[in-house]
Design a protein around this nucleic acid. Structure first.
Lengths: 140, 140
DNA sequence: GAAAATCCAGAGTATTTTAGTATGCTTTAG
DNA sequence: CTAAAGCATACTAAAATACTCTGGATTTTC
């Protein structure tokens, strides 16, 4: 039950953008160095975030990235699902839509399946209840 | 956020043992074939479960495995932590004991860290609230 | 309009983890 | 004694992960 580094880095970078919301576009290089993340790796991560519409970009000198929405409208669940794919504790509960097409067909696996579904939904519920702004407010 | 096959298989096998509680010792071969899991792989999994005290074994003919406690006293959290290691969404929240020795030392990472802690605890809470018996009762 | 700063894209690679096999030994009932 | 079972450890193949590399495209500034 571990997040990928993409998810971890992505959340940290998004917090960085949230802290600098209203400061205009922030160059990726400054985020990468502040968060100690490889710049090229972070570029890949930001490409996913941009394509999914969570951030906006400007090219050229004075370019950079900024949140597409205010921090109170961006949920960590969205960030993590974009970067790590849907929360799927085991293969047979792949996604919300096709809940019943990928059964393992085995004897007691249905009993276990209920657990995986609960686990999946439980994790999603938490991640979909926390916004970037919530995290900023945790600052002691 | 995916469970390992060890965790998945282990939970399924423990459900199998729970269903056959009071039937005495069940040979691993029958569990492996019923659940369609490689016998040798399942042996490794059961070795961990036995060393952790969740199951008991008998050797020789008529040997096999059985739950060390009744199904209502075994929590899925225990099974999964034995087989997958402690729930650790990211490295810096490695375990309950040493919460503050493995900080990343980076600027905003503490804000993210609160999230990882919440996530870790949230998952553990769910898994520690469900027993094998609970899962048997889900049988429709 | 050249140069520099920035984003953008896709291929390639090295490491680690995972999931499983292989081999062989030990114990016990009958 | 033999067959059925558990026990232990080493090995390996495949997949996923976490990056790096290379080269471009856009935009501001001088």
């Amino acid at each position: 039950m571990r997040l990928s580094s993409r998810g971890e880095y992505g959340v940290r970078a998004m917090i960085h953008l949230a802290l600098n919301y209203h400061q205009g576009f922030i160059p990726l290089s400054s985020i990468a160095s502040a968060e100690d993340i490889s710049q090229q790796y972070l570029e890949q991560i930001f490409a996913s975030l941009r394509r999914s519409g969570l951030i906006l970009s400007n090219r050229g000198v004075k370019g950079g990235y900024t949140l597409a929405l205010p921090p109170q409208s961006i949920y960590v669940g969205d960030i993590i699902r974009v970067l790590d794919g849907p929360i799927t504790p085991v293969g047979c509960v792949s996604d919300e839509g096709d809940e019943d097409d990928s059964r393992c067909g085995k004897s007691n696996s249905c009993l276990a399946r209920n657990l995986w579904l609960k686990l999946r939904d439980h994790i999603n519920q938490l991640l979909d209840s926390i916004t970037l702004q919530d995290m900023l407010n945790w600052k002691q």
